[in-house]
Amino acid sequence: MKRTWTGRLLDLLFPPKCPFCGCVLNEPGVCPKCEKTLPWIEEHLCERKVGQSVCAAPLWYEESVRRALLHLKFHYAPGGAEPLGQLVARCSAEHFSGEFDVVTWVPVSRKRLRRRGYDQARLLAERACSCWDTKPVALLEKTEDNPAQSTLTEAAARRANVLGVYRALPGAAGRRILLIDDICTTGATLGECVRELYAAGAKDVVCAAVALSREKKVHKNTEE
């Protein structure tokens, strides 16, 4: 992707780094070493059912991938969203090419947005869309600041925790939607958002994330 002059200036002032090992790069992306050693998901396991939809992701949520996502989420490191968003874009193109005409994201609550300063899923969606010369559209809002999913380990409890806390915004009807989030663990959050989008008249919904968790026990601080 061609860099704008402002992007090039920012690269000089704040050199892009590999989100997984922190080494300085010439342009945003993943360093050659990490490209070879990251826990890439085997092709036949890249997609996971989430409610009425399916979620694709390129990486397992472990080791350096977990550290990179936690850094993005909790340590005010929005710069990591660009290379991670590129991975989401690449995965989405490989698995869902031609299956969506609009991109949206799983939003955080207003309270968490104020505290964190940004919405990491929105950043990922924006960076992914920049690879396609388009912009994501807000099609969901979070209406309640429910307890963090990371405090719950049982799948049933996680499903109950997100029930009714998301609401579809106008614009979903008749659209084929790519829904982006950072991590898919049990799929409860994505599944609830998918349900809301379909209830609002969406024609089709597919999902993408940076990483999938393959452990039944959910790590703390994995989700908002």
Rank of each mutant, 00 (worst) to 15 (best):
L163A: 15
A121G: 06
L45Y: 09
A57H: 00
P28M: 03
D182F: 10
M1A: 15
P58K: 02
S109F: 03
E154M: 02
C23H: 14
L87P: 11
K36E: 14
R175D: 03
G98W: 05
T134F: 02
A56T: 05
L169Q: 04
V162Y: 03
N221K: 07
R115F: 06
P28V: 01
V106R: 03
D145V: 03
W105D: 03
A68D: 11
A208P: 09
G85R: 00
L10P: 11
P19I: 13
K36Y: 07
L84M: 15
L152P: 05
V24P: 06
L178M: 13
C193G: 06
D145P: 00
L139T: 06
H95I: 08
L212R: 06
T4H: 12
G29V: 03
L87M: 09
V137E: 10
C193Y: 04
Y61T: 07
R122I: 01
S130H: 15
C31I: 11
L124W: 00
G79E: 13
T189H: 08
E62R: 06
A211N: 15
V218I: 07
V30M: 06
G85L: 07
L69A: 10
V205S: 05
W40P: 11
Y76Q: 15
P19H: 01
H71Y: 13
K73N: 08
P136Q: 01
V218R: 02
R116G: 02
E99K: 15
S92D: 07
T104I: 01
D133K: 05
V162P: 12
C18K: 10
K73C: 05
C55R: 02
C91M: 14
L163G: 05
R3V: 13
L87I: 04
G164Y: 10
G174H: 03
W60G: 12
